[in-house]
């Protein structure tokens, strides 16, 4: 599916990641980015309660 992210927004994401890609490389990845957007939506649905904890948590005593 086509991405909702605009090409300009996508350029900004690539720059934020500190990556140097050719125009052709960026175009190929941008074309697939709709799949990532779908996953970003799926992990937020249904919206978890504000107090929801992640699966990985900090431990003050490593190994316990």
């Amino acid at each position: 599916m086509p991405p909702k992210t605009t090409e300009a927004e996508f350029e900004a994401l690539v720059a934020r990641a500190g990556l140097t890609l050719t125009a052709a490389q960026k175009a190929g990845i941008y074309a697939a980015f709709g799949g990532i957007e779908a996953m970003q939506a799926l992990v937020r649905a249904p919206a978890p309660p504000p107090e929801a904890e992640p699966a990985t948590t900090f431990s003050a005593e490593p190994g316990r």
Binding site: F10, L13, V14, Q40, V43, P54, A55
Partner: peptide, 23 residues
């Protein structure tokens, strides 16, 4: 190209996925 996708995700995306994982 697959690794680039990981660089475009945010900390909030990662934490949303980890909360989803627990659920």
């Amino acid at each position: 190209d697959r690794l680039v996708l990981g660089g475009l995700l945010s900390g909030a995306d990662y934490m949303a996925a980890q909360k989803k994982r627990r659920a």
